[in-house]
């Protein structure tokens, strides 16, 4: 019994949580800002590179493949550190905020690229052929026929990727960005009590839960519509 009482005292101290909540909410706002911005840029990068890959334009598509492999195959933490600490040696000095967005966007772009590629390839070849037989160019067929149909299919995996990105944005704490995770750690040191981590975890859940629910809902709906 004593153990449980201690656990509560240590990890669920309401008085501390009440006091630090405004700071945490500010951190949460940054978390949402960084992940949302990076997701949007990531979608632009991912969509572009996926189209390049399915067209099989020689050099370009090989570059796109290399990009996806590189950023999916190495830890995000390493990518963040590299962008912030190593690029200055090449004369590229980015403020932490920009470096953070760059690293997250480029990383999520690689995952989004994979999602879109799978989406595009899941559309029946007959769709492109019908579009081409009407005289549309390859790009027109992609833009007006194939990609609009992939949107519905990629929405669930894309949202999953967004959830992952929200959690991964906690890695930005290593370049001193005061997002939710870093704020929580600072509060922990300040109060010498880890209740801030508990509160942060709950905030992460409040942000991600609607998204994960939405994915399940969409997937069910999709299954029905394609059955």
């Amino acid at each position: 019994m004593q153990g449980i009482a201690d656990l509560f005292q240590k990890y669920f101290s309401f008085s501390i949580i009440r006091e630090i909540l405004p700071f945490l909410l500010k951190g949460a706002l940054l978390t949402v800002f960084f992940s949302a911005t990076s997701e949007i840029i990531g979608i632009i990068i991912g969509l572009t590179t996926s189209v390049i890959r399915v067209t099989r334009i020689k050099v370009l598509s090989q570059l796109a493949v290399a990009y996806v492999d590189l950023f999916r195959g190495t830890p995000l933490l390493m990518q963040i550190i590299f962008v912030y600490y190593a690029l200055p040696y090449l004369g590229i000095n980015l403020p932490a905020t920009v470096a953070g967005i760059v690293a997250l966007s480029v990383n999520s772009g690689a995952y989004v690229s994979e999602i879109f590629r799978a989406g595009i390839e899941s559309i029946d070849k007959g769709q492109t052929e019908a579009a081409r037989s009407l005289g549309m160019s390859y790009m027109q067929a992609m833009r007006y026929v194939v990609i609009p149909q992939t949107i519905k299919r990629v929405l669930p995996p894309l949202t999953n990727e967004f959830v992952a990105l929200i959690k991964d944005s906690s890695l930005l704490s290593v370049i001193a960005i005061a997002e939710l995770m870093r704020t929580a750690k600072e509060m922990m040191t300040w109060k010498m009590n880890p209740s801030s981590l508990t509160a942060a975890a709950i905030i992460y859940l409040i942000i991600t839960l609607p998204l994960t629910r939405y994915v399940s809902y969409m997937e069910k709906k999709l299954k029905k519509s394609e059955a």
Binding site: D124, G126, A130, S133
Partner: peptide, 11 residues
Amino acid sequence: IGMVFQSFNLF
């Protein structure tokens, strides 16, 4: 040249 397919391929 118009073409019509066995599998319709409507959008």
